[in-house]
Amino acid sequence: MLGQTGGGKTIKAVLSSDIPTYDPIWTTANQSAYHGVMVYDTLFGIDAQQQPQPQMVGKYGLSDDKLTWTFELRDGLNFHDGTAVTCADVVPSIRRWAARDGFGQHMMNYVKDISAKDEKTFTIKLKERYGLVLDALAKTGTPLCFIMRKKEAETDPMQKIDTVIGSGPFKFNLRETKPGIQYVYDKNANYVPRKEPPSGIAGGKMVKFDRLVYVNMPDAQTAVAAVQAGEIDFYEAPPTDLLDQLSEDRNLKLQVLNRAGSVGIIRLNFLHPPFENLKCRQAMLHIVKQVDYLEANSANPKYYKPCASLFACGTPMENNANTGWFETAPDFSQARRLLKQGGYDGRPVVLLQATNLFKNSARYPRK
C-alpha cells in the first residue's frame, strides 16, 4: 500500500482497478467490496488479531446446547434515508449474502432457521453444532456479509441491486460519481461508531475527513506519477518493482495494510477432461513450483512468501497437513505417473489468463 502523508478534508485514492458493480454481494471483486465497506456496515468485523468482533451487533450469546445464537443490534443504527436498521433488514441480508458466498453456503448447511424475534433481536438456529458462525459473519474475503435495507436485501441473489443506500460511515454520492472515472463518497454525519478503538475492520469507524474520491487510473505509471506529484493521496497497489524507488521519496509513506497478503490460485475445471479425474488434478500439485509464480509477480523476495496452507498462512486456520508435495515440487516423474493413472490422452489444455489481477473472469484464452 502507498499513501501520501498529506492531509485535507477530501482524500483522493486510486484502487488497483475500476469498480465493476455497486452490488458487493453479487460479485467477489475487491473493488466492489471497498465500495461496500464505505456505504454499508457488517454485523461483525475481523480485528487485527484475526478474531471476530461485534460491529452492528451489541449483545450476543450462544445457548447451552450450542444450537441457537441470539443477537441484539446496538443502538444508533440508521440507514442513509433516515430509517432505522431492524432485523427485518438483517435476516434477508444474511440470506442473500449466504446464497452467493462460499463460506455462507457452508454455514447454511448447518442452519435450521434465521428469524427475527423483534426489531432489534434475531436468532440463528442450527441443525447441529457449527463453530464458525461468527467467523462467517465477520469474514473479510469477498463477498462480505453487508447489511442492506429489506427492499434491496430481498432482491434475487442472482440479480444486481440498483439502489445504493446503506448504514455505513459514508454516503454514496451518485450525482458527482462518473463511472469509470471517479466514485465519490461523503461522510455520513449521522453515523454512530462503536466506542472501541479501531482494530482491523472492527472497532470504532471514526471518519476524519469529509469526502473520499476513488479515481480510476488504469495505467500504473500514471498513478505513480500522480501520487508523487501530490495529485492523489493514496495508491492501493503500486508495482512491486517500483517500491524500493518509492520508499526513497520523503513525501510518501509505504505501509503494508494487509499483512496476510493475497493468495493466488490455479483453478482446474473439474467438469471436463482431463481434470474431471482426481489423479490428473493431483498431478498438477507435482508440476507447479509456487516460487516461480511468486517471482514472476515480484522479483524481490521480501514482498512474497511461499505458503502451502490451503487456508492461508498467518491466519488462525493455517494448516500444513498433507502438503508434502509442496516441499518436493516439481516432481515430473510423479506427475507423469498420476497422469497415466488418470487416463490422460495428451489432449491440449487451455489456460485462461486474467487480464486484471483483481477480476474473476478471463478474456483471452491461450494454449
Rank of each mutant, 00 (worst) to 15 (best):
Q4S: 12
G6F: 04
G7Y: 09
K9A: 11
K12R: 15
K12E: 09
K12I: 13
V14I: 06
P20L: 05
T21P: 01
Y22E: 07
I25D: 06
A29N: 08
Q31K: 02
A33M: 14
H35Y: 02
Y40H: 07
Y40T: 04
L43R: 01
A48K: 09
Q49G: 06
Q50D: 13
Q50T: 02
Q53D: 00
Q55K: 13
L62D: 01
S63M: 09
S63A: 10
D65L: 02
D65N: 14
R74F: 04
D75P: 07
G76D: 01
N78M: 05
A84Y: 00
C87H: 00
A88T: 04
A88Y: 04
D89G: 02
V90N: 09
R95Q: 12
A99V: 00
R100F: 05
G102C: 01
G102Y: 08
H106T: 10
M107H: 06
N109C: 12
N109T: 15
I124D: 04
K127E: 12
E128I: 03
R129S: 12
L132Y: 11
L132G: 05
A136W: 05
T140D: 13
L144P: 03
F146C: 09
I147C: 05
I147E: 03
M148Q: 13
V164R: 02
G168V: 11
N173D: 15
R175K: 15
G180I: 15
G180M: 13
I181W: 05
Y185H: 05
D186Q: 12
N188P: 10
N188I: 07
N190S: 15
P193W: 06
K195A: 12
K195E: 12
S199E: 07
G200Q: 01
G203L: 04
G204S: 06
M206H: 14
D210W: 07
D219W: 02
T222D: 15
A225Q: 14
A225I: 09
V227E: 05
Q228E: 14
Q228S: 01
G230A: 06
I232Q: 01
Y235G: 08
P238S: 11
T240N: 10
L242S: 11
R250P: 10
N251L: 05
L252Q: 07
K253W: 02
V256F: 09
F270P: 02
N277F: 08
A283G: 03
M284G: 07
K289D: 12
K289I: 03
Y293H: 08
L294M: 14
N300L: 06
P301W: 00
K302C: 05
Y303K: 03
P306K: 15
S309W: 08
L310P: 03
L310C: 07
A312Y: 14
C313I: 04
G314D: 04
N319E: 11
N320Q: 09
N322I: 14
T323H: 10
T323A: 15
W325R: 02
P330D: 12
Q334F: 02
R337Y: 07
K340N: 14
K340F: 08
K340G: 03
Y344D: 12
R347D: 08
L351C: 09
T355H: 12
S361P: 00
A362V: 12
Y364K: 13
